[in-house]
Simulated assay, not measured.
Amino acid sequence: MKTELKRCGEADVDVLAAISVDTFVEAFGEQNTATNMEIYIQQSLTCDVLLAELRTAGSEFYLLIADGTVAGYLKINTGAAQSEPMGDSALEVERIYALTSFKGQGLGALMMNRAVDIAKDRGLDTVWLGVWEHNDPARGFYRHLGFEQFGEHSFMLGTDPQTDLLMKLGI
């Protein structure tokens, strides 16, 4: 399979919004109410919201393209763009998603390796992320890559306060 991680620009916002919604619904739609999913999508995954994030200093999006198909995406944050204040030596993987039909093909590791490589290239020493406490496959994937839990924070999915476990990897 031919794969590419393409950095998103403003011209990619429609494609980014579509893959963001598709992967989020696939990942969490069955475990959450349709109302809370729709509220979250309207608050966080519209073209306008994503365009503002694309324009935020320290935030970067990458489209995962597999055999010519947009299969997922990666969002990283540094500096003040991080969702928690982790300092200037850390990189946050805020979002990392692949469509279900592409899972099990090493694409998650490909995206995570890109994030780690970016952090190393920039002289950073930590990569961190938040993962829903009930997302056992993702938590196992991150542990397999060497991430360790160091805390937690609240994540609002619509009107439902949920808990994300914070995990980090020293590099």
Rank of each mutant, 00 (worst) to 15 (best):
T3P: 01
E4G: 01
R7C: 03
G9Y: 11
E10G: 06
A11D: 13
D12E: 12
D12L: 02
D14V: 07
A17Q: 09
A18K: 11
D22F: 00
F24P: 00
F24Q: 05
E26D: 05
E26C: 09
A27W: 08
F28E: 03
G29T: 01
E30M: 03
T33E: 08
T33N: 06
T35S: 13
N36K: 04
M37L: 14
I41A: 05
Q42E: 13
Q42N: 14
Q43E: 15
Q43M: 07
S44E: 12
S44D: 07
D48G: 01
A57Q: 15
S59W: 00
E60V: 03
E60D: 12
L63F: 04
I65D: 01
A66T: 12
A66I: 02
D67E: 14
G68A: 05
G68R: 06
T69R: 09
V70R: 00
V70G: 01
G72T: 06
Y73P: 07
L74R: 02
L74A: 03
L74Q: 01
I76D: 03
I76L: 12
N77S: 11
N77C: 15
S83M: 11
E84G: 11
E84Q: 15
P85D: 15
M86H: 13
G87Q: 10
S89T: 15
A90T: 14
L91A: 09
V93F: 07
E94I: 01
R95F: 01
R95W: 02
I96S: 06
I96P: 03
I96T: 04
Y97H: 01
Y97E: 01
L99C: 12
L99A: 12
T100W: 06
K103D: 00
Q105N: 11
G106Q: 03
L107E: 04
G108Y: 00
A109F: 01
M112D: 02
N113L: 08
N113I: 04
R114S: 06
A115S: 09
A115Q: 10
A115W: 07
G123N: 10
L124T: 09
D125T: 14
T126F: 09
T126E: 15
W132N: 10
W132C: 08
W132L: 14
E133H: 12
D136F: 14
D136K: 15
A138K: 09
A138E: 04
A138M: 08
G140S: 06
G140L: 03
F141K: 03
L145R: 09
G146W: 02
G146Q: 03
F147M: 14
Q149G: 15
G151W: 10
H153V: 12
M156L: 14
M156C: 04
G158S: 02
D160N: 12
T163F: 04
M167T: 13
K168Q: 15
K168W: 10
L169P: 00
G170T: 10
G170I: 07
